[in-house]
Design a protein around this nucleic acid. Structure first.
Lengths: 200, 200
DNA sequence: CGCCAATTGACAGTGACTGTCAAAATCGGA
DNA sequence: TCCGATTTTGACAGTCACTGTCAATTGGCG
């Protein structure tokens, strides 16, 4: 299972990521070539691309793991309704961000400064949307799942809310409580702006 | 104002777009080089990039105009609340899609098939989000604007809803009524999933 | 040890995009 | 209508992301 080969691969992947981030933080994403990262990690440029199919991918090594963490949380969440189940699973992923606040925040800045990274991150969100959409469609206990179209709209809206929340959190340098902010934005989707606009 | 120079420029921009789309529909976005588009339009490759800073931009020449159309519609919309004002302005932009259903639908397929185009389109959405966020923050009549954070979340959610709606519409080959679909998804955001989940 | 399969490096190539500068076209006034 | 100023274009060279290919290397395993 975890022979030398596996460990070496993991090591190389980590090295590339770590080295790349150091350089990116110094000189920005476009200021560093894939070739230089490879060189510092002592692998050939070709190998860099074997580990990360595109240069941008080296910035987001946790993407897949987070999707899995979400799926796990989803399985555990009791949930009174499909929406709440998804909401709670999303909030549990938020702890991963909070525990790594500083690097996440620096990465955010990096991403904001690069069109390529922004585009890549947005594309990753589409995978989230797919996962959320499926989760929202599933019935929970006696509660039926959302209809296909509603699930689709909600999945998109939820990811939007997540992005908005993270953005707000990062701009406040991670000082506020991410959990609480997340709850606030999800509440907006659960209850609608109507309640919001009345309630002032 | 509209001397020969202006007209020629417009003509070249149109030519490049039209020719590019024909080729893209034939062979996909990555199957056509910028060089070939330039060649067929009888300009140098360098000139292509002067008109469209990146290859993907040649696919979306209406982007800026639509943002303006939205701003105009916003100014005209009476609106009972900030949300409704924005909603109505968005719905009015939908007519532009409906009047060009076929080409929009073919373009959708083109975009779905290309990572580059998908990423580029998503990046364009960020401009929409900015515009929506500002609009939602403004008071309307006696109704106050949304608070900054809520406006941000709602702006993201609205664009999500728009994307979901367009996706659904395109996948149904534009047979359904886009307006009606848009109203349905915006209603979900206005009233929240709560009402939706109860109401079955 | 020695064979098999996975991993890597070297090399060559394509295509998106950019800087630069001189040639050509348009504009605007005399 | 001609001329100088300004804008737009073409040609050329260069960088960098990314890919296909194939031979060399390396770890896994009997």
């Amino acid at each position: 299972m975890s022979g030398l080969r596996e460990r070496k691969k993991q090591q190389t992947a980590d090295d590339l990521h770590r080295i790349a981030m150091v350089l990116f933080f110094e000189r920005g994403f476009e200021g560093v070539t894939a070739e230089e990262i490879a060189e510092r990690a002592e692998v050939s440029p070709r190998t860099f691309y074997r580990y990360y199919p595109v240069k941008a991918a080296v910035v987001f090594p946790r993407h897949a793991a987070r999707l899995e963490a979400f799926a796990d949380a989803l399985a555990k969440a009791p949930g009174e309704t499909p929406f709440r189940r998804v909401r709670d699973a999303l909030l549990s992923v938020a702890t991963d961000y909070q525990s790594r606040a500083e690097i996440e925040w620096r990465t955010w800045d990096l991403v904001q400064a690069s069109d390529t990274l922004t585009a890549y991150e947005l594309r990753q969100d589409r995978e989230w949307i797919g996962v959320l959409q499926r989760a929202l469609s599933e019935p929970v206990g006696s509660q039926p799942g959302l209809r296909a179209f509603e699930a689709r709209v909600m999945a998109h809206a939820l990811i939007g809310a997540v992005r908005a929340t993270l953005g707000e959190w990062f701009e406040g340098k991670g000082e506020e409580d991410l959990q609480r902010m997340g709850e606030a934005s999800f509440a907006l989707l659960e209850q609608g702006v109507t309640s919001e606009e009345r309630d002032r």
